[in-house]
């Protein structure tokens, strides 16, 4: 189908974009990579009066490191996030997640900030933000807020963003000594949304895993930190961790994939990821599925 009629503006600065969003209120929608928004427009699921295109604002894109924090500009394309030398070195979890995000042509255009602001519960970046303890930096008219990922994702396509605010950057703490990570995603076909996915970070020592953060996606209305499961694994009880997921996750139930199936798959994924993190065999995956 074809998109409904709307007006379009492409401001050249963040302040100009925020001014337009403030002036037009709920009628205005920011346009990042457009890989979900333009789809919604073409399918007439969305009918904004004005699109405020963020693609001509240079300060919103790029990856940098300062005092133990890697800052990724919101308009950095998926591909540029996952292939940046700084990200591959400092945040290998993000590099491992990249091949699971849709397809090359989508990764070339979609942005990490757009993905985080959309908060689709079956997507990779929100879970990675949660696992890595990221901070979402947002700007509204005249104000900047810094929101922990733990407090940012509130529900289905729902975040802590207020009207008129946009995500400007995501800040990731650089993992310290002994840091390990894990990532696994199951989908029916490569590039599909996840049936179940898990992004995880933690610390590994001679006595086992600690500081575990297990961020599941595709198994609730938002990415979920499985705290009880993490505590059980830190205590060396994988079976207990897998059992704990029944209370921590709320998988959607649809005819193609029953909730019970997703819960089972979440337990399988947890077993694999926790095993690799415990054994120190995590590596960047280039294959998909299995």
């Amino acid at each position: 189908m074809k998109a409904p009629d709307f007006a379009y503006a492409r401001p050249a600065s963040l302040d100009a974009a925020l001014a337009l969003l403030a002036e037009h209120g709920e009628d205005a929608v920011p346009l990042a990579g457009g890989q979900s928004l333009v789809t919604a427009l073409n399918m007439r699921l969305s009918a904004p009066g004005l699109l405020v295109d963020l693609n001509a604002i240079p300060e919103l894109a790029g990856v940098s490191e300062d005092e133990g924090v890697v800052r990724i500009g919101a308009m950095t394309r998926h591909r540029d996030v996952g292939t940046a030398a700084l990200v591959r070195e400092r945040l290998p979890l993000l590099a491992a997640a990249l091949p699971h995000i849709a397809h090359p042509a989508i990764r070339n255009r979609g942005t990490i900030g757009g993905s985080v602001a959309l908060a689709d519960p079956a997507t990779e970046w929100p879970a990675c933000c949660l696992a890595a303890g990221a901070t979402i930096v947002v700007r509204g008219p005249g104000t900047e807020r810094r929101i922990a990922a733990d407090a940012f994702f509130l529900g289905l396509y729902t975040t802590a963003l207020e009207p008129g605010e946009i995500v400007t950057a995501i800040e990731f703490p650089v993992p310290g000594d002994g840091a390990v990570w894990g990532f696994e995603e199951l989908s029916r076909r490569h590039g599909d949304y996840a049936l179940v996915g898990l992004a995880a970070t933690g610390r590994r020592s001679a006595v086992g895993l600690s500081d575990l953060r297990l961020a599941f996606f595709g198994v609730a209305d938002r990415p979920v930190l499985a705290r009880a499961a993490a505590a059980a694994i830190e205590a060396g009880d994988l079976t207990g961790a897998q059992a704990a997921l029944a209370d921590e996750l709320d998988p959607p139930d649809d005819p193609a994939t029953r909730a019970a199936t997703r819960l089972h798959l979440a337990r399988v994924v947890l077993g694999r990821v926790a095993g690799r993190m415990r054994d120190g065999t995590v590596k960047e995956e280039t294959s998909h599925g299995a």
């Binding site: 379009y8 492409r10 457009g34 890989q35 333009v38 789809t39 073409n42 399918m43 699109l51 295109d53 693609n55 591909r79 397809h103 090359p104 042509a105 989508i106 070339n108 255009r109």
Partner: peptide, 25 residues
């Protein structure tokens, strides 16, 4: 809506979906 890939073109040397970019972009 970005699924089939038939409209894929190169923009600034990178493959993108022509149906998921606006002409004004």
């Amino acid at each position: 809506h970005g699924v089939c890939g038939a409209c894929t073109i190169l923009v600034d040397g990178r493959a993108v979906r022509a149906c998921l970019m606006l002409g004004v972009q």
